[in-house]
Structure formats: structure tokens, C-alpha cells
Design a protein around this nucleic acid. Structure first.
Length: 289
DNA sequence: ACCTAAACCTGGGCGC
DNA sequence: TGCGCCCAGGTTTAGG
């Protein structure tokens, strides 16, 4: 489900809502999602720990706990994190959660405040790992992650290095490769390349300095705007209160195949890049040099 | 080292 | 209504 803007929205909310709270219980009906330990052991190990901070790299969520532990979560395609108010409080009577997301809750953390953190996951691809901080940071999938796409350390120089390293790959593939650059997925790679005016199929080796500059600026522009809009709810993404984002209202190409390009009126096309769809305007994104 | 296809799951939508 | 097929925000793994 979520790409960088959605995950950023989620972790900002979590820092406001559950930072400082204490985990006092855990329930799951899909233990397969919990890596490396049985749910009973997981429950025992997490209980009593205070939530110190919530961070992310790309689409990976890290909930820092007391005692040097990290709860590492990945939402994959359909994961949602919801924070629900104390069941006994007045607020709980408000039915925020009439939606589908509520039917697929497979893991629940009970907190001392009475709130619950709930992991909804229709397709059950989500991942949950609890371990010592250094062991989480040492996981192969974490170690090999590329730099976060909105990190200040992601400079134009770094972007050019990535392009040089993958001369023969289409730019659309590079943008969504988590091991080169982390956070961008299928929605934003299409939107970024439309913003930059570059065809997704263009090979990195054929991209000029000026074009690279345009793509680099579009990465920051599109992702930051999407964060401001609290993500894209094209399908079923919801924030921790169950509310949709707003970026779907301003999508230019993603899932707009057959519709007219807002800029030039040309019909938007869909193609395959790897196993995934990519959307583009064949006129606005035609080589400009 | 690199690329591709399948696998992990469930559900929506479409054509027949 | 129902069946079969394609599609879906992501990653991992197996095979060539």
C-alpha cells in the first residue's frame, strides 16, 4: 500500500499519538507475519516496554522501545496502522472505522493509556520483527536499503552516482529500486517522471545532466507535496485515524490510462516496466533533448 | 552479477 | 449468478 509519503504521514501521527505510551498486551491471528519468534514470546518480550520514538527509512517503520529494542514493521501492499482511543472513553463512540480496513485487523498492541495500535492487512503481506536495535539495523533488507528519497543527505551528486551505477536500466525501474533509493513505489515513480517530463523507459545512460537535474528536483517536489496532502488514497490507504489522504485528487498520470493529459490533452498510456504498470503522457514525456 | 518470473494473499472488476 | 482472468500501493526467492 504505502509509499514514502503515506509512511511519513503514519509515523508523524504515531509520534503524536503513542510516543511515551507503554505496550501492555498483544494479540494476533496471523502469526506468520511475525518473523523469528512465536506470538507468545513476542508478546512477552514487548510487554512493559515504553515507546520512545517512531522513525522510518523509505517504507520501513521503526518503533524504538525501551531496553534497546526496535519493533520493525513493513506494511507491504495493503498494511494499515490504526490508533484507536480508549474503548471506555467518549471518543470511542465515534465510529471512525466503518470502512473496510477495519475488517482485516490481524495484530493488536494494547497500550497503557487504553489506546490500541492495530495492524490491518487484507493481503497479509505485512512484516513484524522485534529485536535488539543493532540486530534490526543489521538485517540484510535494512542494510542494503538505498538512501531515503527525502533525506537531506540525498544530494544531486548521489543521484548521479546512482544513474552511473545503472546505465542500462530504465529510469522508471531505478526510481522504485529500494536498494538504490528508498521510499518511491509505483504511484510516485509515474508522477515524478511526468513532473520531470521524462519517459520511464529511458535508460539512465541516456539521461543528460539537465534531465537528471529535472528528475532530481521532481523527486523532492512530488514527494514533499504528497506528504503535505497526507498521501494518496487511490485505493484504500488510510491514516492512523482511518481518514483518507488527498493526493489522489491531484494525480497526473497514475491509473489514468485512457484519460486526457491535463497539460496537453494527449491520451495517457500504460506500459509494463518489469512486472509492474507504469503510466505516462507520450507527448509531455517525449525526449526533450 | 544481473534479469525474469513466480510466490506470498485476498478481493474488485470485467467479459462471457 | 458464476466462472475465469487480469489487476492491485511491495518485497523475497528461485531459476537461468
Amino acid at each position: 500500500m504505502p509509499e514514502l509519503p503515506e509512511v511519513q504521514t503514519i509515523i508523524s501521527d504515531l509520534n503524536k499519538k503513542i510516543k511515551g505510551d507503554v505496550v501492555i498486551g498483544f494479540w494476533s491471528d496471523w502469526p506468520k507475519a511475525i518473523k523469528g519468534k512465536k506470538p507468545e514470546k513476542f508478546k512477552k518480550e514487548i510487554s512493559g516496554r515504553k515507546i520512545l520514538a517512531i522513525n522510518r527509512i523509505g517504507k520501513n517503520i521503526f518503533i524504538e522501545l525501551s531496553g534497546g529494542k526496535i519493533l520493525y514493521l513493513h506494511l507491504k501492499m495493503t498494511g494499515h496502522l490504526l490508533v484507536k482511543p480508549d474503548a471506555k472513553s467518549q471518543k470511542a463512540k465515534v465510529n471512525y472505522f466503518i470502512e473496510k480496513v477495519n475488517q482485516y485487523i490481524h495484530h493488536i498492541w494494547k497500550l497503557k493509556s487504553g489506546k490500541t495500535l492495530e495492524f490491518s492487512d487484507l493481503r497479509k503481506f505485512g512484516k513484524i520483527v522485534l529485536d535488539n536495535k543493532d540486530r534490526i539495523k543489521g538485517l540484510p533488507e535494512i542494510k542494503k536499503l538505498g538512501i531515503d528519497a527525502v533525506a537531506p543527505q540525498f544530494t544531486f551528486l548521489k543521484f548521479r552516482e546512482i544513474l552511473t551505477k545503472r546505465k542500462n536500466s530504465p529510469i522508471g525501474t531505478i526510481l522504485a529500486d529500494q536498494n538504490l533509493l528508498s521510499g518511491i513505489g509505483n504511484i510516485y515513480r509515474s508522477e515524478i517522471l511526468f513532473n520531470a517530463g521524462i519517459l520511464p523507459q529511458k535508460k539512465a545512460g541516456k539521461i543528460s545532466l539537465n534531465e537528471a537535474k529535472k528528475i532530481f528536483l521532481s523527486i523532492g517536489k512530488v514527494l514533499k507535496k504528497a506528504i503535505k496532502f497526507r498521501g494518496t488514497s487511490d485505493s484504500d490507504y488510510r491514516d492512523t485515524a482511518g481518514a483518507p489522504g488527498n493526493f489522489q485528487k491531484v494525480l497526473k498520470v497514475y491509473r489514468r490510462e485512457g484519460e486526457k493529459c491535463e497539460k496537453c490533452g494527449t491520451i495517457i498510456k500504460r506500459a509494463k516496466l518489469g512486472q509492474r504498470s507504469i503510466f505516462f503522457c507520450p507527448k509531455c514525456q517525449l525526449q526533450n533533448e
